[in-house]
């Protein structure tokens, strides 16, 4: 009977919820994001309904001649660019060996984990949810490749047991160290690329005296333990002087992979067995 006499006013209920909201807001992001990831993990089978239909629709459209040839062209373009990058890497390796500056060739320390895309974060963020997490050795900072493993599409930003969040290279929070190269030349410019928050990325802070042209290829720079060789990211589609810094270029990069068509992705994880063997 005593319980029935307890009465909370509207003001006290509102204040309690508001304080709870403010506390949740000020808690560190790694703590609170687990709740969101747990939700995606728990409802994963339901959340991914519709992805297949969307992809099937895309594939049906792809039956027309122009689109098929376009996709084929993009795929061949990426293969060609990756082979070119590999040749460059082998050439560098050859030069190093020829000068007796390195020992035996390194063991590949990478392994790939295939994951299915289960959803997107919201209209406002360039992020994807995938169905692999820490249980499959997927951790923040690892590179995410397209289904054919021929282009970088993003980086793991958060991971939970069997779900992870991928921040796409087009997200404004995502920066990537890159090389700009041109076929048939020695051009190799290192720079930082950042997402534009649209379907493109941008490169700034490059001196206008550097020779950069539309059509040059952008590669992700190799990162020890994460990416052994440079891998194609996209193509430069626009080069113009920066309005705010006239001495610098403002460069737009079109990613090699169409993010809206992705259905599966591959994550580069460190191959622990190989690492142990090398040790």
């Amino acid at each position: 009977m005593a319980g029935r006499n307890i009465h909370f006013s509207n003001a006290s209920i509102f204040s309690s919820f508001l304080i709870a909201g403010v506390v949740l807001f000020f808690l560190p992001k790694p703590l609170t994001s687990k709740t969101s990831l747990f939700f995606h993990d728990f409802f994963q089978p339901v959340l991914q309904i519709g992805r297949d239909n969307q992809m099937d629709t895309g594939r049906l459209e792809a039956n027309s001649e122009d689109v098929v040839s376009g996709i084929k062209y993009r795929q061949l373009w990426k293969d060609y660019k990756n082979l070119y990058a590999q040749r460059m890497a082998l050439h560098e390796e050859y030069e190093r060996l020829a000068n007796i500056r390195s020992g035996l060739p390194q063991l590949s320390k990478e392994a790939l984990v295939m994951a299915r895309i289960t959803g997107t974060s919201s209209n406002y963020r360039r992020e994807l949810m995938i169905n692999k997490g820490t249980n499959a050795s997927v951790h923040p900072g690892q590179f995410v490749l397209s289904e054919q493993q021929d282009a970088i599409v993003g980086v793991i930003s958060e991971s939970f047991d069997s779900v992870a969040r991928v921040r796409l290279i087009t997200d404004t929070m995502q920066t990537l160290e890159i090389h700009i190269r041109r076929d048939g030349t020695d051009t190799d410019i290192r720079a930082m690329m950042i997402g534009n928050g649209t379907n493109t990325c941008g490169i700034s802070m490059i001196d206008r005296q550097r020779d950069i042209r539309q059509g040059d290829t952008v590669y992700a720079a190799a990162v020890p333990e994460k990416l052994n060789i440079p891998l194609v990211v996209g193509e430069i589609t626009n080069v113009r002087p920066d309005d705010q810094h006239p001495l610098l270029w403002k460069i737009t990069v079109q990613p090699a992979e169409d993010m809206s068509r992705l259905n599966n992705v591959a994550i580069i994880v460190a191959n622990e067995k190989l690492l142990k063997r090398k040790d």
């Binding site: 994001s33 969101s36 974060s121």
Partner: peptide
């Protein structure tokens, strides 16, 4: 209405990246 609004806000945060803004 107050309870529903906060719960819907919590649900909106679950679908996003950061917890808290929608609840408030």
């Amino acid at each position: 209405a107050i309870i529903c609004s906060f719960i819907i806000g919590f649900a909106a945060d679950l679908t996003g990246t950061v917890m808290g803004p929608h609840i408030i």
